[in-house]
């Protein structure tokens, strides 16, 4: 694909990093497509949940003794 340096101290790491970077970059581009498709379904799930499920108004980030979830 390309000619690497002839300097033996650099050559191994240069080759290793090159192939790792190429494989990783291509895999990331392909994986983006998978994330996008899966994410669209998850957005639909989130919107449906927001419209249909009830919300615990006491779930506000504060610790209170009378909430069973906040009791160790």
């Amino acid at each position: 694909m390309i000619e690497f340096t002839t300097d033996p101290s650099v050559r191994f790491w240069s080759q290793f990093v090159f192939y790792f970077a190429v494989v990783n970059t291509v895999a990331t581009m392909l994986f983006t497509v998978v994330v996008v498709i899966g994410g669209i379904f998850d957005v639909r799930f989130l919107i449906r949940a927001l419209k249909t499920e009830s919300l615990d108004q006491d779930d506000n980030g504060q610790v209170r003794e009378n909430r069973p979830e906040d009791r160790p």
């Binding site: 998978v34 994330v35 498709i37 899966g38 994410g39 379904f41 998850d42 957005v43 799930f45 989130l46 949940a49 927001l50 499920e53 919300l55």
Partner: peptide
């Protein structure tokens, strides 16, 4: 609402 799934 703690409703975020994996891909999202």
């Amino acid at each position: 609402a703690r409703k975020v799934r994996m891909w999202l």
